[in-house]
Design a protein around this nucleic acid. Structure first.
Lengths: 232, 232
DNA sequence: ACCTGAACACCGTTCAAGT
DNA sequence: ACCTGAACACCGTTCAAGT
């Protein structure tokens, strides 16, 4: 019996429960969070599930679709966090809460977030493209609920999505780079010795301060003001 | 004799001139522009240069460093386009010209541009990180020339770089996805049938209009206004 | 029903050998 | 001096075979 569900648990000869899509995708998410998406291979993922890579193909068409599944699960989590039971009283509050929710997700899964923008989108015609049509639909619906016209809600979607994805892709990119590729740079033209850059050297303390949060909030307030002014 | 330089050209038995770093990196840039960075392999790049993959290792330490070289060459091109002989009379004009130059580069090499943000940066402490320290140094110098304090120039760098990279990463991401991975999506929870999304269906024409240019310019003007207000 | 072994067509990279 | 063949340790993926 399973301790939580109380269901009868089937086990194979090696004492494993059989795989399924969700188990595999969930493990892939954990894998990418820990080691980055470059290192996610079918063979290594199989190993973590106690199985040969070939076994995964019974549940997942291939590696690309596995990555699509990862994005889909993460986007559904976002949908639940931000769109279900949203209590915002005004549209600026609504945007603030959505922004906070998306940023929380991006910082929780910094190595997965870039996939949201780089995977071939579900609706390539949507500008900017997003994997979760359900989220976009709910977003437009929310805005209309706050009194925006249909055309106005599209304008807001555009600038809000651009703002959010843009900022968070950048904030996230640093965290997503492999932490152990300590290889030397190719020396193409001149060495990038810090000594050649007096201003950089002098301002290094300020330049290295992590101000993403402040910058994010300042820019978001700005965007909301802009939208408020242009509203008709 | 070489038709252009007039120099004596060494050729090997197969009638090829010997390779060098620049030739290889330039071919890699062309390759990524045409077929995407996922498909750039040492073996295929070698083939385009009329050589086995192993020959490349005489000039390039490895694939990762080749990609670093690609970014470096592109950034140097950007430096030449935007920083050398910049004639802007005021700092807002300066930012407009830089923004236009960076966007031009991003749209010329949409499949290379994301590398600028995702490669391990030359100075990881720099926020936001950028591969070209030379460009950042010149940027700060320019701002100080227009009367910004040292601290003020850092603030402007931060918000300007965040804005630019963010917007362009997003605009560029669509173009960078492989155009021929027509595989079916994994069906995880529900099908993303457009019929379930009435607002999306209704607003499809507006949502599919490419408004990146307008959005980019509106947001840039906004940023400049914000910077002008906060200036001390 | 579910997993694996063997195989195929690819990778990046090293190094001794060819010219 | 410059390139290649052969090799190694990996990939994703297919499919007949095992339990």
């Amino acid at each position: 019996m399973d301790a939580i569900t109380g269901e009868e648990v089937r086990r194979d000869g090696a004492g494993r429960r059989p795989l399924d899509q969700m188990t595999i995708v969930a493990e892939a998410i954990r894998f990418i969070d820990e080691r980055g998406r470059e290192r996610l291979t079918m063979r290594q993922l199989g190993a973590r599930l106690g199985v040969e890579a070939m076994a995964l193909y019974r549940y997942i068409p291939g590696r690309e679709q596995l990555l699509d599944g990862v994005v889909e699960v993460v986007m559904d989590q976002l949908y639940g966090d931000t769109m279900v039971d949203n209590q915002a009283a005004t549209w600026p509050e609504y945007l603030q809460q959505l922004a906070a929710g998306v940023r929380r997700l991006a910082l929780t899964h910094p190595r997965i977030f870039p996939l949201i923008a780089s995977r071939p989108p579900a609706a390539p015609w949507l500008r900017p493209p997003l994997r979760s049509l359900r989220w976009v639909e709910a977003f437009l619906e929310g805005l209309i609920g706050y009194g925006f016209s249909r055309g106005g809600s599209v304008t807001v979607y555009r600038s809000f999505a651009t703002f959010l994805l843009g900022h968070l892709l950048l904030e996230t990119a640093a965290a997503a780079t492999l932490p152990d590729s300590g290889a030397d740079d190719i020396e193409l033209l001149e060495s990038s010795d810090l000594a050649n850059y007096p201003l950089l050297t002098e301002m290094a303390p300020q330049l290295s301060m992590d101000m993403y949060t402040d910058e994010f909030e300042a820019a978001l307030e700005d965007l909301i003001n802009r939208l408020a002014l242009n509203r008709r």
